[in-house]
C-alpha cells in the first residue's frame, strides 16, 4: 500500500523550540531516521504556512489570499510518502514522527485514485 503521510505541526514547533539542545538533536535525528527508512520517499520540506498564498478561481479570475487555506495551526507542515504492508505498519512509522509527540499529529492518507 502507498500512503501519503501528512504532518501537522500544531504546537510542535513552539514546543520543540523550547527543548534542550540534546532533545532538539533527537528531533532532527528522528526526522533523519524516518527519511532513511525503507519504503519512505521524502518530499522537499514545506516552508512556513505564513508564507503560503492561497488561490481561488471565481468567474474565471484567480483570487489570491495571504496564508494557508485553513488556519495557521491547522496548516499542513510536511509530507512524505510511505510504501508499507498495511495500516498497522504505517501507524508505527507515524508514531515515530516527532511532531506527533509534541502536540502535532500525522494523518495517514492512503493513496487512491478518486476520479
Amino acid at each position: 500500500m502507498k500512503y501519503i503521510m501528512v504532518i501537522y505541526q500544531g504546537d510542535a514547533q513552539e514546543r520543540q523550540a523550547a527543548l534542550s539542545e540534546e532533545e532538539q538533536k533527537q528531533v532532527y535525528a528522528d526526522y533523519q531516521g524516518i527519511n532513511e527508512m525503507p519504503g519512505v520517499t521524502s518530499v522537499p520540506p514545506l516552508g512556513q504556512p505564513e508564507n503560503a498564498t492561497t488561490v481561488r478561481v471565481e468567474g474565471g479570475k484567480a483570487l489570491t489570499t495571504d496564508g494557508p487555506f485553513v488556519g495557521m495551526k491547522e496548516a499542513v507542515g510536511g509530507l512524505f510518502i510511505l510504501e508499507a504492508d498495511d495500516l498497522d505498519a504505517a501507524i508505527e512509522v507515524a508514531a515515530r514522527v516527532p511532531a506527533a509527540r509534541y502536540g502535532g499529529a500525522v494523518e495517514i492518507r492512503p493513496s487512491e485514485v478518486n476520479w
Binding site: D85, L87, I108
Partner: peptide
C-alpha cells in the same frame, strides 16, 4: 479496504 487495515491477529507488541 482503502486504508489497508490488516486482516490478521496482531503481532505480540500490539
Amino acid at each position: 479496504r482503502a486504508a489497508g487495515i490488516p486482516f490478521r491477529v496482531p503481532p505480540a507488541h500490539l
